[in-house]
Design a binder for these strands. Structure first.
Lengths: 121, 121
DNA sequence: TTCAGACATAGAAAAGTTTCGATGTCTAGC
DNA sequence: GCTAGACATCGAAACTTTTCTATGTCTGAA
């Protein structure tokens, strides 16, 4: 029998993330556009946006799959699939502790994106 | 015979745009997520990102379809299709002057998006 | 070692997206 | 009015995404 997920210490994650090609000042290259589109695509889904919002607002800034499945009304494999996309894009980290996988936001990811979008000419 | 597109005065566009549900402070609703995903989806394509970048960096802050087609290596209907998506999302305005359709960035659209993404808890 | 449960992966169906060629519409010049 | 040209729309082909059910893997308790 497995009991309810206990809250444990979460390791600090090193910040990284390439960033900051100004979008509006000069035409970006095809490969810059592909990179940025990849990040935006990961976010451009209502379920994934709600996952980002729910995880960020969750106590401790992290949540496991079992805490995310029910409120979204989708099956566990579907939620796992969306979480994987968010991790691949560098938006979430995944930390497996015991039987549970804890997902947490990489704060710099969204900030870098916001910076690219709002940096003017 | 139609000569090359002459630069004409562009009317100032009134700023608007609904905005600013904090994404990270508390879980957003399904309908907020759908709205935000719609905006992100419009941007989450390499061709459309390059269109945004090219138009913003273009002289006068606007460009017509004929100026955008060749550098992207796609056909005119395909570029028109992408431009339509950007207009529908409120990212571009379309101003038909004579035979040409001039597209321009709505600056507040990207700024609103950046604000939603970077507003912390 | 065995079992229950949390999560991931695989494969398939349905739906959505991107792109094209063909064609329609509208403007400006003749 | 007629024509050329800029742009939009249509319909179809190819591809990608979303979601499911079924199944696999791994951890911790007994």
């Amino acid at each position: 029998m497995i009991t309810s997920p206990a809250r444990q210490a979460r390791p600090l994650l090193p910040l990284d993330e390439a960033c900051c090609t100004p979008l509006l000042r000069e035409p970006i290259t095809a490969s810059q556009a592909a990179d940025l589109a990849g990040l935006l695509k990961a976010l451009a889904d209502p379920i994934r946006l709600r996952l980002v919002s729910m995880v960020a607002a969750h106590e401790g800034g992290e949540a496991c799959v079992c805490e995310l499945t029910e409120p979204l009304g989708l099956t566990q494999p579907t939620i796992s699939h969306h979480l994987k996309i968010l991790v691949s894009a560098g938006i979430f980290t995944r930390d497996k502790r015991g039987v549970w996988a804890y997902y947490a936001l990489v704060p710099s990811a969204l900030q870098a994106l916001a910076a690219v979008l709002s940096a003017d000419r």
